[in-house]
Simulated assay, not measured.
Amino acid sequence: MGRRLEIDGISKRYGDVVALREMTFEVRAGELFGFVGSNGAGKTTTMRIALGVLASDGGEVRWDGAPITPTTRRHIGYMPEERGLYPKMKVGEQLVYLARLHGLSPKAAERSVAEWTERLGVAERRGDEVQKLSLGNQQRVQLAAALVHDPQILVLDEPFSGLDPVAVDVMSTVLKDKAREGVPVVFSSHQLDLVERLCDRVGIVRNGRMEACDTVAALRESGTVHLVVDAPGAQPGWADALAGVRVHSHDGERTVLELGPGADDQTVLRAALATGPVTEFSRRRQSLTELFRNVVTGGAA
């Protein structure tokens, strides 16, 4: 079945504020898992509990079927949202230090730092202080810090935040490569187009609870179906009387209709043709962004 990271029913309360409500999901070996939700939904709290930085009030985090231990945590690569680099320390020295903390020998640490700084495009910055780097290069170094010890699990909090398109491509390639090596990769992001493009599965969080979790294709399949109809001769209101159909938008000749359960698209087509020529008639599933908006505002996914 392969090794996997399991988040099983974890809960967390801060006084009267419930941060997590029986949060449950798993990240499988070789899988890219996108963890999305509004600010304050519980993503960072979940990641901190998985790392052992926070204790949960209930539930369990498991790796390969066993509870996470301090030894296990040495094999996790973590990229915090509030970046944790020492600003006045030189890049190379800092990465070697972090690799040694995770158990690498001096020579192995040097080799790994050379490899990852080269791969992430910051090799020429190894002698610079972190504070002298651009924010994008600081991001690359922070990712290198999560990778230098050859982790068995990757947990990344907003790794794409603030990156330019070239750096996004570099980061994406690295994450896909690590997944191909069998590493479970979980990352949070507000850039839903990236999540939709990269991830094998996505979990949508709302108010500390996992509201939807599946492949992007399955989530989109479960969402609302829209029909795009371009009928130049149709008058406004031509689709108002159709059973199970709601007019989502109307802009000149183009009408976007929302199909309810059991609605017949062929009935819609006949009604459109009755108005004259139809130059476009296509079905469109909701994007991940639209699904996310529905879930976080309390609509159906």
Score class of each variant (00 low, 15 high):
Met89Asp: 03
Met89Pro: 03
Met89His: 02
Val91Thr: 07
Gly92Asn: 02
Gln94Pro: 09
Leu95Lys: 03
Val96Arg: 08
Val96Gly: 01
Tyr97Leu: 11
Tyr97Pro: 00
Tyr97Asn: 02
Tyr97Gly: 00
Arg100Gln: 14
His102Val: 01
Leu104Tyr: 08
Leu104Asn: 05
Leu104Cys: 10
Leu104Val: 03
Leu104Ser: 00
Ser105Arg: 10
Ala108Asp: 10
Ala108Tyr: 00
Ala108Trp: 04
Ala109Thr: 01
Ala109Cys: 03
Glu110His: 08
Arg111Gly: 09
Ser112Val: 06
Val113Phe: 11
Ala114Val: 08
Ala114Trp: 01
Trp116Lys: 00
Trp116Gln: 02
Thr117Ile: 10
Arg119His: 06
Arg119Glu: 13
Leu120Val: 07
Leu120Phe: 10
Gly121Val: 08
Val122Gln: 06
Arg125Tyr: 13
Arg125Trp: 13
Arg126Trp: 07
Gly127Gln: 14
Val130Ala: 14
Val130Gly: 12
Lys132Cys: 04
Lys132Trp: 02
Leu133Trp: 12
Ser134Asn: 04
Gly136Asp: 05
Gly136Thr: 00
Asn137Phe: 14
Asn137Gly: 00
Gln138Asn: 07
Gln138Val: 03
Gln139Asn: 15
Arg140Val: 05
Val141Thr: 06
Gln142Ala: 15
Leu143Lys: 02
Ala145Trp: 07
Ala146Thr: 14
Ala146His: 10
Ala146Gln: 12
Gln152Met: 13
Gln152Pro: 13
Ile153Ser: 07
Val155Asn: 13
Asp157Asn: 11
Glu158Ala: 12
Glu158His: 12
Pro159Met: 05
Leu163Ala: 10
Leu163Tyr: 05
Val168Lys: 01
Ser172His: 13
Lys176Trp: 12
Lys176Asp: 14
